[in-house]
Amino acid sequence: MPVHALVVDPSAPAAVRLTEVPEPVPGPGQVLVDVSHASLNYGDLNDARSGRAPVGAVLGSDAAGVVVQAAADGTGPAVGSRVVALTAGSFAERVAIDVGALAEVPKGLDLAQAVALPVAGVAALRSLRAAGLGPDKRVLVTGASGGVGRFAVQLAARAGAHVIASVGSSARGEGLAGIGADEVLIGLEGLRRPVDVVIDSVGGPQLVAAWNLLAPGGSVQSVGWTSGEPAVFPPYATVGPAKSLTSFVIEGDVGEDLATLAQLAAEGALTVEIGWQGSWDRFDEAAGALRGRRIPGKAVLEPASGGVDAPRLSPQN
């Protein structure tokens, strides 16, 4: 029987429409999951508008829920297991997921919190790892109030680094010192000393400024581009002592990293900030708040309607 899902539709206000799609058929190494929560990322919004996801494709990357059919090859979690996953097409009531793309959710961790971990948490963890994080490093996190930024601040602080959190306003910086930021700056104002690592999700002129602050041997990891502005490097900006600007994308199985993040969150060692939570038929509201940078942390969607007084997306065929 068909299931409800959010699909790409360029004619819709947020380029996303709630409709019905065929129920997924899992492959031998996949489990079937009833999705209780999904989280929204900037990348999902860009996929819907940029053409990277074709018209009619189910949107989404982050999912959490319960396994209703185990993998036919005997791998992965059993029926009834609570899981979190990074998988394409997560904005559906039921999703077939590769066992390497998920992790079981520990007791004590709510699925609404777990679902904030996949894209943002894995991006933060892996970009810091790729940049050579260590206790002697000065780490600059731009867009630090967002999903990736908040996790990067916490993970860098746990590693003993000196963490500098850059935000767009004083309001956006609230709470960052409490989760590990040694300095909280508006933009890069007042930052004079070089930094060893930059986790950048803003792009544009701020990326150029961050590059200019990078110490010899340092690394900029470009994990996002929320500014939507071009980055123009002045002549000779890339000539001099060796340092690197690396494009970042999540590749390969993420199950092990997801399990690490979920365990940290369950222990209270990693704080999950949810700035918006509601039914997925309020997708336009969530998308607008995310694009308008009115959400600290993550936006969490629940694939169930009813009981919420707000403009809704109407299911269409």
Rank of each mutant, 00 (worst) to 15 (best):
D62W: 00
T19Q: 05
P22E: 13
A48D: 08
A63I: 01
P28T: 10
S50K: 03
V25Y: 15
S36T: 15
T19Y: 02
A48G: 04
V16P: 03
P28I: 10
R52K: 15
D62P: 01
Y42N: 14
G56F: 11
N41Q: 07
L45C: 09
V55D: 14
Y42W: 14
P54Y: 04
D62S: 02
R49I: 09
S36G: 14
V21K: 03
D62N: 05
D34Q: 13
R17N: 02
D44C: 08
L59E: 03
V58G: 02
D44S: 08
V58K: 02
G43M: 08
G43S: 11
D62E: 06
V55P: 10
L18P: 00
R49N: 06
L59G: 00
V58W: 03
S36Y: 13
T19D: 03
E23H: 13
P54F: 04
D34M: 11
A48C: 08
V16K: 01
T19E: 07
Q30F: 06
L45V: 08
G29L: 06
D62Q: 03
L45M: 08
V21F: 01
R17H: 05
G56C: 12
H37T: 12
S39V: 06
A38W: 06
T19L: 02
L40I: 05
V55R: 15
P26K: 04
V31R: 04
N46T: 15
V21M: 05
S36I: 11
N46E: 13
L18W: 07
S39W: 04
S61H: 14
G27C: 11
